[in-house]
Amino acid sequence: MMRAMEPPPEHPTPTPRSRIPLGRAAFLGTVAAGVGGIALLSRFGGGVGSSLASLGDNLGVAAIVPTGGWRIYNVQDPMPTFDPATYSLTIDGNVENPVTLTWSDVQATEMVTEVSDFHCVTGWSVYDVRFRGIKAQTILDLVKPRTEAQHVNFQSLEEPYFDQLTMKQFKLPNVMLATEMDGKPLTRPHGAPMRLVIPQMYGYKGVKWLSKITFENEPTLGYWETRGYDADAWVGKDVSH
């Protein structure tokens, strides 16, 4: 059997007797680890995704698939394309001074930079995101909503995506219409040129590719809310109902 030149096997046992079902043990062990992992991470998790992302970045995965911890969600193919020449943001509804801002009008509006965390309802988060944009109060001062208008609708260029906040929620700290993220203009996947940021709520409330804001007297359900998601998407609260 063996050629003379080869060293003898360490322990040749041509007719092994004991047979161990190690294959199914490895298979079932892997499945069990996965299912246990879902339970454990759901309970004590948080940050595993972001540490995984930073591990990936350190291993050079970032060069192939850079993420920065973000996932991109959109509901219609293809994503809206931002054209500075034709873009406009209309703000109307039950307000004293409805406006339509061109892209240069938007850029000329007072902006601030604020750092906040971003949480997605599917379980991933990005921490310490530096957003620059227009504060809610600046918009309110500009269009002057009437007192009965207690609901704010946000329409995306990505039809039919749309969501809404109450006036009280719109006035929360760190809420803004962001045009920059981490020092750079918003990219197309992140909702260029402008998206709503409301760190207190899950990301599906933060309408991307923002095209229209309407102040209404009555609430309307948003895109995901007509599909069973909670209208008040407070981070950390059980979103089932």
Partner: peptide, 14 residues
């Protein structure tokens, strides 16, 4: 929402 768990994405990624 009944089927949504915080750890699912992480396990899928890992």
């Amino acid at each position: 929402t009944t089927y949504r768990f915080a750890g699912t994405v992480d396990v899928h990624d890992l």
